[in-house]
Simulated assay, not measured.
Amino acid sequence: MMGAGKSTVGRRLAKRLELDFIDSDDAIEQACGLPAGEVFARYGEKDFRDGERRIIARLLDDHRQVIATGGGAFADEGTRSLLKDKAVTIWLDAPIEILAERTSGRDTRPLLNNDDPRGTLERLMEARRPFYSQADIRVRSGNVPHRDVVEWIVSALEDYLQRRV
């Protein structure tokens, strides 16, 4: 979900794993010349998700790296299938209170530009939870240092990869 810390934790995780990091929203901006939020607002969710899926597919075919996807990417069946097939997926699960706090006062999130952003977050989480729960790894995050979340992810990755052997 937006505000869960995907970009911040992703950067730190990539550094910890000695991998490159890319935020799919940044890749969208590079491809379109517009911020991802503006692409979403201008072209609508369907066209945005189609473009996002193509960009994520390209990133997955590139070298091994940590990719932070937008909050709605994993809810898209085609994108989720790509990610499940070609990557280890991680759900950063943060409480609504924290998501609301982290996203408040920002106008870069078109889905939250309304009179009830917290209610919107609650509805999005309810709708997306069944998809997020399909991630390979779930790490609960919250008001804890990012380094702790990174270490929890590394530990969960080690366990996950060990089970796959």
Score class of each variant (00 low, 15 high):
G70V: 10
G72K: 05
R118V: 14
I67E: 04
G33W: 10
A68Q: 05
I28L: 01
N113F: 02
W152Q: 15
W152V: 10
E101V: 02
E151T: 12
A100H: 11
S7C: 05
L111G: 05
P35H: 03
G72H: 02
D62Y: 04
R12C: 06
R164A: 14
D23L: 00
D61G: 15
G78F: 08
R12F: 06
R164Y: 05
K15F: 08
L83K: 01
T108D: 15
L161V: 13
L59Q: 10
A27F: 09
V39T: 07
E122I: 08
V139P: 04
A27H: 08
N143R: 10
D25L: 05
H63L: 02
D23R: 03
E122L: 01
Q30A: 15
K6G: 10
E101F: 03
R129K: 13
H146I: 10
P110H: 05
Q134S: 13
D116N: 12
R109Y: 14
A73L: 03
M2E: 07
G51R: 14
E158I: 10
L13K: 05
I98C: 02
D136I: 03
E52F: 04
Y43P: 01
T103S: 06
E151S: 11
I22V: 14
R118I: 07
D26W: 08
L121N: 11
